[in-house]
């Protein structure tokens, strides 16, 4: 049985709407959207939806009690809640440098979680160590 779905592409700020015809898991046709990336996004979105995730992790010894972190690549959407729960158990210590891996291979996905900024000991100024 054929099914019609509308997917909004989030690859870029344009936010094109694409209409998809599919039968079960098979995509029969994709209409609309201005570029190739949109077609790829729709296929991925229907088969294995992923999102960039940005959140915070507890840290001790720095200017702030939280360190902002993000996924090195889009993360499986269905597992974001588990990822957040996992990150909530972490507690880091300064110093941490921007881009440093704070959690390797998160939930076995092969995706690392990276520090979004440098955080030094409270006495030092922020910036390059």
């Amino acid at each position: 049985m054929e099914e019609e779905t509308r997917v909004i592409c989030i690859t870029c700020p344009k936010g094109c709407a694409l209409d998809v015809t599919r039968e079960g898991a098979t995509v029969l046709e994709i209409r609309g959207g201005g570029c190739k990336r949109g077609q790829e996004y729709v296929k991925a979105e229907l088969a294995d939806p992923r999102r960039m995730v940005a959140t915070t992790v507890r840290i001790r010894g720095g200017l702030h009690p939280l360190l902002p972190v993000y996924t090195a690549a889009p993360f499986p959407k269905g597992r974001i809640a588990d990822l957040l729960a996992e990150l909530r158990t972490l507690e880091l210590r300064v110093p941490v440098k921007m881009g440093e891996v704070v959690l390797k291979n998160a939930l076995g996905t092969g995706i690392d979680i990276l520090a979004s900024r440098t955080m030094t000991r409270l006495k030092e100024k922020n910036g390059e160590m």
């Binding site: 960039m52 940005a54 902002p68 993000y70 921007m98 881009g99 979004s116």
Partner: peptide, 22 residues
Amino acid sequence: CIHNGFGLEVLKKDLPGPAYAQ
């Protein structure tokens, strides 16, 4: 602004706000 989406135009990178600032 810890979410990503910063730097696509100038740096050709998709960074969180603090990384862009850093």
